Simulated scan of single mutants.
Amino acid sequence: MPGTASTSTTVGPLPSLAAQAERLSELGMPELAGIPADEMRAFAEGAGGDRTDALLVVHPDRAPASALAPLLRRDGKPGFVVVDMPDVDRFAPVDIGLPEAPLYLVTGIDRGDDKADWSPEEALPALTEEDRSPLLLTEGIHWVLQQPRALERNRCFMTIGSRLRKANGGFDARTPAIWISNGTGRDGRERRNAPKVGWCWWGNRHTWLGFASATGRESV
């Protein structure tokens, strides 16, 4: 397969589930998703409040990508969605066993640095063969909210678990990703170094984009 033999990256242990629940509360997630802060805390405790091997995620039906992206911060600058992706919330889970619950856990997250310079078309079957599931865009945003160092310049990632299905049953060739803006073009200079939700073509390769994935998802 294409690409260099770089190492996959888990970016170290996550904050505890209890700490993640508090972080979501501080970000205003109870108001955004309609889930009381006490309910988030109770879910985290019920799942094992001290656990650092799982990401606490709000279901995308409750907290879409367009609402989550501005919560991201880097160098004091808020995250944003590129202007040519006004349909970002229509990118939905594809062949993902997503729990039907307002809150769930994602386990075994990896940034997929080993697949940098692969195309989404090449990476998806490889992840499937490894028994890994690609992250959804909203899951990727949750990850960076809880663990900002997951997003590094030249070490960013795609979230190809989210796809946009067209009216004819096929898929839009755009695939979502999260990276760091250079402040060029329509991003604007004021957004240099800000976290950015954008897209890349299904068949294109990028040396600075891995493919974030997980080993599983679970509800309590």
Rank of each mutant, 00 (worst) to 15 (best):
S8R: 15
T9M: 13
P13C: 09
P13G: 11
L17D: 00
A18N: 10
A18V: 11
A19R: 07
Q20H: 09
A21Y: 03
A21G: 05
S25H: 10
E26R: 15
M29R: 10
P30W: 06
P30N: 11
I35V: 15
I35M: 09
P36Y: 08
P36M: 06
A37K: 08
A44N: 10
G48N: 03
G49N: 09
R51G: 02
V57C: 15
D61V: 02
R62N: 12
L72M: 11
K77L: 15
K77R: 15
M85L: 15
M85W: 13
M85K: 06
D89S: 00
A92P: 04
L98M: 03
L103S: 12
L103Q: 01
V106M: 12
R111E: 14
R111V: 13
G112M: 09
D113R: 00
A116W: 00
A116K: 14
D117F: 10
E121H: 06
L124A: 09
T128N: 05
R132D: 07
S133I: 14
L135N: 00
L136D: 00
L137Q: 03
T138W: 03
Q146W: 01
A150F: 08
R155T: 09
I160P: 00
K166F: 05
N168R: 03
D172E: 15
A173M: 07
A177G: 09
I178Q: 02
W179V: 04
W179Q: 11
I180E: 00
G185E: 04
R192H: 11
K196G: 00
V197G: 09
W208V: 07
G210N: 02
G210K: 01
A212V: 01
A212N: 04
A212C: 08
R217G: 09
